[in-house]
Nucleic acid binder design. Structure first.
Lengths: 222, 222
DNA sequence: GTATACATACATCCAAGAACGTATGTATAG
DNA sequence: CTATACATACGTTCTTGGATGTATGTATAC
């Protein structure tokens, strides 16, 4: 085998990333050798070194390929002209959760990120990428919740910072917990309930919604 | 150097675990060699192989040393004769969060578990250990919440299974998120607020507290 | 009390394999 | 013809597990 067309070369690159995803998921990133990935992809290490600098570069490419479709989703919710921003937001959150359950590739990448890779000084740029992803997401969420307040869907006294933090907590916690023990609850079926529970917290929990706003009759403190 | 007393040997063992904790945290578990750990501990690899079977055994010992004090804490809350089980429970949760912020060793172990180790088929027993830890914790929480219902501190209609899941989600999410971006919020100061927010959810959120119980005047659905 | 016998607690040394990065070969697309 | 898209071959570096050496603690016999 030798030189192929540009399209075929691009295909090879994708195959390598596919293979890396499978091998990383099976053996963990550290214990996966480039030879393992090459074998899984049906090429030799030479091909990998042609397309990528090293294993970390393959890993980064895998994350990048996964990040783009996810970020595209979040664009819809933060449109200021959307008349039901909270509804769009709710749909988005539910779809992320259900997609993780239903799409094996999506799920694999999350499992790799949570359980099958190590972030160290060596992989600092990757850690930064994940952190930026969190911060970017936080900014988007902040805008979306701001729109929801404008439309009267959330109390004006909402503690935005805490609402964003609590969203990260809830989504990260849900995915981490379910991926650890997929049998402990039915995430696909209960996704909407968990999201609605979060939204209810934004409206009625005094430490997030703001003191005095919409407090239920019984009071909230012990 | 040669044979030392039993006490000194035990000290050496602890030093090795201390060293492993530091090295694992600095380089990640996979990239840490037994030589790295030995150097950090001021011994040779021979000493490590005397006390432990291999690197994974060191890792397991590190987790074990960390698990015991944490489990001891949770015993207090689930005593049926406790008159304020929910209060004890609240104290426990807050202390776990604040301990993670304040105790560097505690924090290091969590950071290693979340970000600096890989769970694979190879390390299946460790993964199982973590899973069992979750399940055991869930059972304890279930008993504690049951006591709180007995005492009228939580609604009798409480969906216990979801309450336990939501607790795992909340605590795991909080620790994971804060350890990823310690600057994004002040966990030490806000720990009580987050815990109270969770408890409020148990009381007033219809998808967890049970339909119809304590629903605030505005209703909860969009 | 002390000599003996053995277990303990390491240090040192060695052989083997794995994985990496690079250098080089090669056939084909452009 | 030349750059491309790989395959192949090679040398080097780490790490591991175990084998071996050794000096001391400790229990027992006398």
């Amino acid at each position: 085998m030798a030189r192929r067309t540009k399209e075929e070369a691009q295909e090879t690159r994708e195959q390598i990333i596919d293979a890396a995803e499978l091998v990383f998921h099976r053996k963990g990133v550290a214990r996966s050798s480039l030879n393992d990935i090459a074998q899984q992809a049906g090429v030799t290490r030479g091909a990998i070194y042609w397309h990528f600098k090293n294993k970390q570069d393959v890993f980064a490419a895998m994350l990048e390929r996964h990040r783009l479709p996810t970020e595209a989703l979040s664009q819809r919710a933060e449109d200021p002209s959307e008349s039901d921003p909270l509804g769009r937001f709710r749909d988005l959150l539910i779809s992320v959760l259900q997609r993780t359950v239903r799409d094996p590739g999506h799920r694999r990448v999350f499992e790799i990120l949570f359980y099958k890779c190590e972030f160290t000084d060596q992989t600092a740029p990757l850690m930064q990428r994940v952190q930026e992803s969190y911060l970017d997401g936080g900014a988007k969420v902040r805008r979306t919740l701001g729109n929801a307040i404008e439309r009267g869907q959330l109390p004006a006294t909402l503690n935005l910072g805490r609402a964003v933090t609590q969203l990260h907590v809830q989504m990260t916690g849900l995915l981490y917990t379910w991926l650890l023990l997929p049998g402990s609850f039915d995430l696909d079926r209960e996704a909407a309930d968990f999201v609605d529970s979060y939204i209810a917290t934004l409206r009625y929990c005094p430490t997030i919604a703001g003191e005095g706003a919409h407090t239920p009759p019984g009071g909230l403190d012990p």
